[in-house]
Design a binder for these strands. Sequence first.
DNA 1: CTGAAAGCGCTTACAG
DNA 2: CTGAAAGCGCTTACAG
Lengths: 364, 364
Amino acid sequence: MKGIRQLAEHLDISIGTVSRALNGKPDVNEETRRRVLAAAEELGYVANQSGRSLRQGETKVIGLMIESSTEAVENADNFFIGVTSGLQSVFARHKLDLVMLPCPSDEDPHEYLKRIVARRIVDAMIISNMQRIDRRIDLLSRAKIPFIAVGRSLSPGNFPWIDLDFEGVADRAVERLVARGHRRIAITAPSSEVNLGYVFLESYRRALERRGIAFDPSLVIRVKSSEHGGYQAAHELLVLKERPTAVILIYELMAIGLYRRLMESGVMPGRDLAVIGFRDAPRARFLQPSLSCFRMSLYDLGIALGRTLLANMPAYRQFYPDDGRNVVWPLELVPGESDAFDPGTGEKEFEPERLSFDDRTVEF
Amino acid sequence: MKGIRQLAEHLDISIGTVSRALNGKPDVNEETRRRVLAAAEELGYVANQSGRSLRQGETKVIGLMIESSTEAVENADNFFIGVTSGLQSVFARHKLDLVMLPCPSDEDPHEYLKRIVARRIVDAMIISNMQRIDRRIDLLSRAKIPFIAVGRSLSPGNFPWIDLDFEGVADRAVERLVARGHRRIAITAPSSEVNLGYVFLESYRRALERRGIAFDPSLVIRVKSSEHGGYQAAHELLVLKERPTAVILIYELMAIGLYRRLMESGVMPGRDLAVIGFRDAPRARFLQPSLSCFRMSLYDLGIALGRTLLANMPAYRQFYPDDGRNVVWPLELVPGESDAFDPGTGEKEFEPERLSFDDRTVEF
DNA sequence: CTGAAAGCGCTTACAG
DNA sequence: CTGAAAGCGCTTACAG
């Protein structure tokens, strides 16, 4: 089966009628529609997207830009594939397809996006990994391509975004640690210009301030946002002259590297150092002792992103009258054992289970 | 800037000449070309892809289908993002763009692919997660869409694929373990119909046979190919009446869950049970004791996939005369500490470093 | 309810 | 070397 013309000839009707039948237009005889649908199904006809797009001026495709730099990939930890399901469940209602657009690591993200946008491959974009100043916002605004950003940016202009509640995370983490008596609380921060690093650090600083604790720049450990960065962060903590009694991590995977480096030095998270992680990545769930961290539903975030994006597209706005913009997405604390260390007594508050390899419960 | 017409009017020449200049056709005055290129750059003109595709009958887009079922996602562990870089480096030479097409988890992968193919969104496909019988092969062959599969399948017909060397992995793992005196060697296998499970299991069976060891079905542990599956696998190993002394894992992330469950029972990999893992996932690198496993370059695999795919596309075949099909991709053994256990003496061969939390090297 | 025709933005024989 | 024109496969006013 080639095109609509062949299908029309096969049915001995005009292509216009075939098109109308296929697209559910009301002014088609039901019997005709039935025949058309049956023939299309039988012959496996599906409209060529280029033809449709050219005529309609829209592609029915929405792009999710993914940075494939090593660091971004490490961080992602399936963040995007998780969000994807939620996005698709929204888009499916409107027969919109989602494609993930990986920016080659040797190409400038701005140039890549420019090319994709100019070629009109997609009707709208979802961008993430927002930088402190992110020129992509200006690019998309000028090109009048609807978009939504996963994350805020200092770049001027109003634009729709949804960001994680870094303020809430930092505040609750500090609150929890201070309640246990911690005063020297370190924090990790990304070494790049990614905006969330600034937001998180500023939130941490304010959380300390609210509790009358002076901000100490030496307790801000700048490392790559990766497992290896976590390893490095632990190393830097261990060599600090005045060591902190607690550390708050950014990025889900840092905890794994941090644990490893600490344990190499015989420092046990939750016993010798309180650790609070960020998002509970699937990988991190297997850490021992269990990590106190924050949880969110990637699926629900995907739905919110999808709805907010569509609410910003003229053709779909009507379906999402209540979906505005600029949501701060809450995360829920998942208490674990990693922050049980009490700096006052120098002891942990409770005995984490199954810590020692000698605590055998099955004879082998 | 809208279309080529506006650009042509601005330059006061015909759209045909603009098109030829932009597309590097030889029959264009160099001065004219220079002017066209400059104006396009200045006005930010890029050809509308739908127009091109419709006229040329090709989209210059290659799709990488991704299954977003929970299990597939868990397994992926950034496998695809790793391969993506290699693919893009090949495609970039031909101005081909790569898009990742995530199949919604509630949609049948076959139907999804059918829709994508029929809509002519891509010129060629890369498919993976091959099933024992995989109807997508037939679908793509019939539709005459060039494709390459990451993985073999029993489905009939010749088709290009590249698969990992499961035979080599199984054989070297068994060889290594047998050399250390193991006779009861368990293996994990996926509980699904994914073809690599069958290939791996058969390879393991033959590897045992070559060394005169009887195949024992009770030593085949069927679990989900995920961290949690690894956890379950360890559990099943622990309750076996006649316990194995070694286990070979499939899928990169299983090791993490397996380690956890073993340690909960005081069973130390490398000391009480020999463990050999599959691919050295970034996550698994942080395991203690270090995992003996197999390594490969995802980037190089991506390049090979890209070249082999293009060698199967009429328009690009000429550039890749030497790239055939059906490569079995080798993996390299990375010896670790996890298979140091000697079943004869019941002792490990060497003391894995930094195993005990009491082996402190830094005072805290 | 249906058909004939225009036209979306391109590329490419073809004529000059 | 350039321009005018055809046509890729659709959808959609428009006429009947």
